[in-house]
Amino acid sequence: KYSDMIVAAIQAEKNRAGSSRQSIQKYIKSHYKVGENADSQIKLSIKRLVTTGVLKQTKGVGASGSFRLA
């Protein structure tokens, strides 16, 4: 599940300011076997996790910027 992968990526990075979408994508692609549409799936999952309150956006708008666990 992409949401689990995103949470794992943010936990692994341990950046106080949060993790960027690009760094999350890079982590997921190197640690998991994902399909061609992974980028758009990650983007959608990040937006969903922010609206449900699992992630907090520290910089930027939408799916860009930095995110950390709430």
Rank of each mutant, 00 (worst) to 15 (best):
K1T: 14
K1A: 10
Y2K: 01
Y2R: 00
Y2H: 02
Y2W: 15
Y2N: 01
Y2E: 00
Y2P: 02
Y2D: 01
S3T: 13
S3R: 09
D4E: 12
D4K: 08
D4C: 15
D4W: 14
D4T: 08
M5W: 12
M5K: 03
M5N: 00
M5I: 02
M5H: 02
M5G: 01
M5E: 01
I6C: 03
I6Y: 01
I6N: 00
I6F: 01
V7Q: 03
V7C: 10
V7N: 02
V7H: 03
A8L: 05
A8D: 06
A8Y: 04
A8E: 10
A8W: 06
A9H: 02
A9V: 02
I10W: 01
I10S: 06
I10G: 00
I10Q: 02
I10E: 00
I10C: 06
Q11R: 13
Q11T: 10
Q11L: 14
Q11P: 00
A12Q: 06
A12V: 05
A12W: 07
E13N: 12
K14D: 11
K14H: 11
K14A: 14
K14S: 12
K14Q: 11
K14R: 10
N15Y: 06
R16Y: 10
R16Q: 10
R16N: 08
R16H: 12
A17D: 12
G18E: 04
G18T: 03
S19C: 12
S19M: 10
S20L: 05
S20K: 03
S20E: 04
S20H: 03
R21G: 10
R21A: 15
R21P: 11
R21V: 15
R21F: 15
R21S: 11
Q22E: 13
Q22W: 09
Q22D: 12
Q22P: 04
S23Y: 15
S23N: 07
S23T: 07
S23D: 11
S23F: 13
I24A: 00
I24D: 00
I24F: 03
I24M: 01
I24V: 03
I24Q: 00
I24K: 01
I24C: 04
I24R: 01
Q25V: 15
Q25H: 08
K26A: 13
K26N: 13
Y27V: 01
I28W: 15
I28M: 03
I28C: 03
I28R: 00
I28D: 00
K29C: 05
K29Y: 10
K29H: 10
K29S: 05
K29I: 08
S30C: 11
H31N: 07
H31S: 03
H31Q: 03
Y32N: 02
Y32C: 05
Y32L: 02
K33Y: 08
K33N: 12
K33L: 09
K33A: 11
V34F: 03
V34C: 07
V34M: 05
V34N: 03
G35M: 05
G35P: 09
G35E: 06
E36C: 10
E36T: 10
E36L: 11
E36I: 11
E36F: 10
E36A: 13
E36V: 11
N37Y: 07
N37I: 05
N37M: 05
N37P: 03
A38P: 04
A38T: 04
A38W: 06
A38R: 02
A38M: 07
D39T: 08
D39Q: 06
D39E: 10
D39K: 07
D39H: 06
S40N: 12
S40I: 13
S40Y: 14
Q41Y: 12
Q41H: 09
Q41K: 14
Q41R: 11
Q41V: 08
Q41S: 06
I42N: 01
I42A: 00
I42E: 02
K43Q: 13
K43S: 13
K43I: 14
K43Y: 14
K43N: 15
L44V: 07
L44G: 07
L44K: 14
S45F: 09
I46K: 01
I46T: 00
I46L: 13
I46F: 03
K47C: 14
K47V: 10
K47Q: 13
K47Y: 11
K47D: 12
K47I: 13
K47S: 09
K47M: 13
R48Y: 14
R48K: 11
R48I: 14
R48F: 14
L49T: 00
L49S: 00
L49W: 01
L49I: 01
L49P: 00
V50N: 01
V50A: 03
T51L: 14
T51R: 13
T51M: 14
T51P: 00
T51D: 12
T51Y: 10
T52E: 13
T52C: 15
T52N: 10
G53T: 01
G53C: 05
G53F: 04
G53N: 03
V54M: 05
V54T: 04
V54S: 02
V54N: 03
L55A: 01
L55C: 02
Q57C: 12
Q57S: 07
Q57F: 15
T58M: 11
T58C: 14
T58Y: 10
K59M: 10
G60Y: 06
G60T: 08
V61A: 13
V61G: 12
V61H: 12
V61W: 11
G62L: 06
G62Q: 05
A63S: 13
A63D: 11
A63T: 12
A63P: 07
A63C: 14
A63Y: 08
A63F: 10
A63W: 07
A63L: 11
A63G: 14
A63E: 12
S64D: 12
S64G: 13
S64T: 11
G65C: 15
G65V: 15
G65L: 14
G65D: 14
S66H: 13
S66A: 09
S66T: 13
S66W: 13
S66R: 15
F67H: 04
F67D: 02
R68Y: 14
R68M: 14
R68P: 03
R68F: 14
R68N: 06
R68C: 11
R68Q: 13
R68L: 11
A70I: 08
A70Y: 09
A70M: 07
